[in-house]
Design a binder for these strands. Sequence first.
DNA 1: TGGGCATCGTGATTCGTTTCACAAGCGCAC
DNA 2: GTGCGCTTGTGAAACGAATCACGATGCCCA
Lengths: 204, 204
Amino acid sequence: MPKATVERLPLYLQCLQAIGDSETTVSSDALANVAGVNSANVRKDLSYLGSHGVRGVGYDRLELCAQLRRALGLTDKWPVVIVGVGNLGSALANYQGFDASGFNVIGLYDADPSKIGARVDGQRIKSMEDLELDIKKHEVQMAILTTPAGAAQEVADMLVSVGILSILNFAPALLKLPDTVKCRQVDLATELQILSYYQASRPT
Amino acid sequence: MPKATVERLPLYLQCLQAIGDSETTVSSDALANVAGVNSANVRKDLSYLGSHGVRGVGYDRLELCAQLRRALGLTDKWPVVIVGVGNLGSALANYQGFDASGFNVIGLYDADPSKIGARVDGQRIKSMEDLELDIKKHEVQMAILTTPAGAAQEVADMLVSVGILSILNFAPALLKLPDTVKCRQVDLATELQILSYYQASRPT
DNA sequence: TGGGCATCGTGATTCGTTTCACAAGCGCAC
DNA sequence: GTGCGCTTGTGAAACGAATCACGATGCCCA
Ligand SMILES: NC(=O)c1ccc[n+]([C@@H]2O[C@H](COP(=O)([O-])OP(=O)(O)OC[C@H]3O[C@@H](n4cnc5c(N)ncnc54)[C@H](O)[C@@H]3O)[C@@H](O)[C@H]2O)c1
Ligand SMILES: NC(=O)c1ccc[n+]([C@@H]2O[C@H](COP(=O)([O-])OP(=O)(O)OC[C@H]3O[C@@H](n4cnc5c(N)ncnc54)[C@H](O)[C@@H]3O)[C@@H](O)[C@H]2O)c1
């Protein structure tokens, strides 16, 4: 499946949920409007799912949701860990949207001894040793990294060594990882700077 | 300048900072390695800056930084506001990396009366009325939106009506905005779901 | 039961981006 | 000074994705 398509599937899922259960069926055109993409593009994307829309009618909303979820691998909840429970890590730990999206935060971990044992959203912050054990025990494959940039590479190496295969990295650091490990970078500064570019280059 | 290029410029800036001041000069190849892109791509990107590297030598590190900053419109600090000071908004307010990236959080705003007046990282949380006044007074053009998804559209409309031109939206909601307003979406669930896709479709 | 309409699926086309490949240019060593 | 090695800048080619355009098809209603 093309990379560009994969990156739009979660969008479609979100749009379908936004549409709600007023309609039992959705046309590529309707979905395209909500998602802000071209309707032919939507159809081509959905065709990769082996999805079968009905000509003259559209796609069955619930079935399409299910297919998207299946394609994205969201049939079961993924266990994930959060490493680095500072400002950002705590905010993520408190976030209630994980469940709805198909994920389950099974633990919070930090290197700072003074934080260990503290509770965030009902979960106890655990040590880095616990992290290694928990990942192995629960076969966790996904980690959210919210340590300072300086510690990110070191922590990532450790995560990889104990079996993590996907990392969502919030630290502004470019991780060197084996190419068996998939990483996505979320960088606030980058986003703002891109906005800055367009802001600065406005026809005034 | 191509969209794809603009989105890489912040990356280059970050890489240059990571390289540090050990080297006075950087080759496209060196930068490409750190950034994880093709070196011809780097050269083509930098050529849009009107940048002049020196054949046989490379680019002057400091001059290149300055050019990138200029291209991105980071010559002065942009004033930004944070709207919705909950878990995530507070984390962002506490974040110390804004300054280094070229931004200055001038105010925090929330609709919840019980939050107004509370301090986060030394700043008082202010009311939505103050928000309107402050945006107009300081001619703020960029806003960070961290309200619940349900309130996002309404708040965005208000922001636009008082002059905001760029929005960084963390709420999982698709904003309808006039096309004079630029918006970037940061969506945790989307990122995790993309990772989930690749995780699920691994050759096992 | 058949005609018309809405909508899908998809080949062909266009567009934007990445990569390749190499001539041109600079600096340094001898 | 002259030659050699390194690195840029960029046209051309390859690639991937978005869009167009339209035939195929199922549904609804007369
Ligand atoms: N806070 C934000 O809004 C924000 C925004 C964008 C990016 N970031 C990035 O996210 C990361 C976290 O930001 P923050 O504001 O939460 O920082 P923070 O300092 O509040 O939290 C970092 C946490 O990581 C822990 N830590 C440090 N070294 C560790 C290690 N080796 N192993 C495990 N844990 C370790 C610290 O004890 C601390 O609890 C930083 O890299 C920051 O640049 C934060
Ligand atoms: N917390 C996270 O880690 C996280 C992760 C991804 C996405 N998000 C999204 O970010 C947004 C904020 O998340 P959060 O966890 O901080 O939620 P939160 O409920 O803690 O904070 C939301 C804040 O917005 C304020 N607010 C509500 N309505 C408002 C209005 N009309 N105008 C101004 N302020 C208003 C609330 O008073 C509250 O302080 C949500 O949309 C959430 O889905 C959060």
